[in-house]
C-alpha cells in the first residue's frame, strides 16, 4: 500500500481527469440525446481537439488555454460539414447507417493522424503544466486543477445553454419529440447540426485540456470514446449535471482501481463499470433526478 499522500494525490488526480473527461462525454451525450446517434468518431474528435491545440500553440504562440474559444470553433467547423454531407442525407435510414458512417470516419481520422502527424505520442507542453500544486498531503500538477476548473465551468455553461436559452429549449424539444418539435416550427435539422457542432466543440476543448495535462497519440480516440460512454451511462442520458457526476465518479473509481489492483487496471475499471451499469441501471445512477 503506497503512503497516504501519494494515494490521496492519485485519487484527486483521477477525479480531476474525470472532470475533464466529463466535458467530452457531455458532447457525446447531447448528440446521442438529440440525434439518437452514438457518435463512434467522438473519441477522435477529442484527438482532433488535442492536435488543434498543439498546432495552435505552435503557429500562433498563443497559449491554447486562452485560445480555447477559437479551438472550439475550429473543431465545430470541422464537424458541421460531416453532419451536413454525411449524416443528414442518411437521416431517413435509421441510426445504424449514421453510426456506421461515423465509425468509418473514426478509422479514417485515426489513420489520417498517423499519416499526417506520425504515430508519436505527444503533449501540449506549457511551463506551468508541470508545476505542482500542494494542499496538505495532496500534490497534483497545477494543469490538472486548471483543466478541471475550465471543464466544470464549461459544463455549467452548457447546462445553462440547454436549460435557459431558446436554443436549449429547441434542443430539448427536438430530443423529446422531433416530429412534434418540427410541427411547432422548429427547424429540427438545424438544431441537430448545431448540436453536432456543439458536441464536437465539447470534445475539442476537452481534447486540448487532456492534451495539455496528459499525453495523446493518434489512436487515443478509442479509449476516450469508451470512457465517455461509460460516463454517459453512469450519469444518465440527457442529464448534463449527471455527466459531471459520472465523470468524477469514473475518475475516482479508476484511481481507486489503479491503486489497489495496479495501474494497468485503471481503464479496466471503466469498462467493467460501463457493462455493469448497463446490466443493472441502464438509465444511469441519477435516473430520478433529471435536469
Amino acid at each position: 500500500m503506497p503512503d497516504i499522500g501519494v494515494a490521496l494525490s492519485t485519487i484527486v488526480s483521477g477525479v480531476l481527469l474525470g472532470g475533464m473527461l466529463a466535458l467530452t462525454a457531455l458532447g457525446l451525450s447531447i448528440v446521442l440525446g438529440v440525434m439518437r446517434l452514438v457518435n463512434l468518431a467522438h473519441g477522435d474528435f477529442v484527438v482532433v481537439g488535442a492536435y488543434v491545440g498543439l498546432f495552435f500553440l505552435k503557429f500562433t504562440g498563443v497559449d491554447p488555454l486562452l485560445g480555447l474559444p477559437v479551438i472550439a470553433l475550429i473543431v465545430a467547423a470541422l464537424a458541421i460539414p460531416l453532419y451536413r454531407f454525411l449524416l443528414a442525407p442518411l437521416a431517413e435510414r435509421g441510426p445504424e447507417a449514421q453510426m456506421m458512417t461515423m465509425f468509418a470516419v473514426a478509422i479514417i481520422l485515426e489513420n489520417a493522424f498517423v499519416l499526417g502527424f506520425s504515430a508519436d505520442t505527444r503533449s501540449i507542453e506549457r511551463d506551468y503544466a508541470t508545476l505542482p500544486l500542494t494542499l496538505g498531503p495532496v500534490t497534483v500538477p497545477l494543469i490538472y486543477v486548471i483543466g478541471f476548473a475550465i471543464a466544470v465551468a464549461l459544463i455549467l455553461a452548457v447546462h445553462w445553454l440547454i436549460s435557459r436559452t431558446r436554443f436549449g429549449r429547441d434542443l430539448r424539444a427536438s430530443a423529446a419529440d422531433a416530429q412534434a418539435a418540427a410541427t411547432l416550427g422548429i427547424d429540427v435539422k438545424r438544431v441537430q447540426m448545431l448540436t453536432f457542432g456543439l458536441g464536437a466543440a465539447c470534445a475539442g476543448v476537452g481534447g486540448t485540456l487532456i492534451g495539455a495535462a496528459f499525453q495523446f497519440g493518434p489512436s487515443s480516440g478509442a479509449a476516450y470514446l469508451l470512457n465517455s460512454l461509460a460516463i454517459v451511462v453512469l450519469g444518465g442520458l440527457g442529464n448534463v449535471l449527471g455527466t459531471l457526476f459520472g465523470g468524477v465518479t469514473l475518475g475516482f473509481l479508476q484511481s481507486v482501481g489503479g491503486l489497489t489492483l495496479g495501474d494497468g487496471y485503471r481503464d479496466l475499471v471503466g469498462m467493467a463499470l460501463f457493462l455493469l451499469v448497463l446490466a443493472f441501471r441502464p438509465d444511469g445512477f441519477l435516473a430520478r433526478r433529471r435536469s
Partner: peptide
C-alpha cells in the same frame, strides 16, 4: 417548420407535450 412560419399552427392529436420542458417552456417553444 416552414409551414408553421407561414402561420399554420397545429394542436396535435395526443397533445404531444414535451415532458422535459416546463409548462412555460412548452408554451414559449
Amino acid at each position: 417548420h416552414r409551414i408553421a412560419e407561414l402561420g399554420i399552427a397545429h394542436c396535435m392529436e395526443g397533445r404531444r407535450i414535451f415532458p422535459t420542458l416546463s409548462v412555460k417552456e412548452n408554451l414559449l417553444i
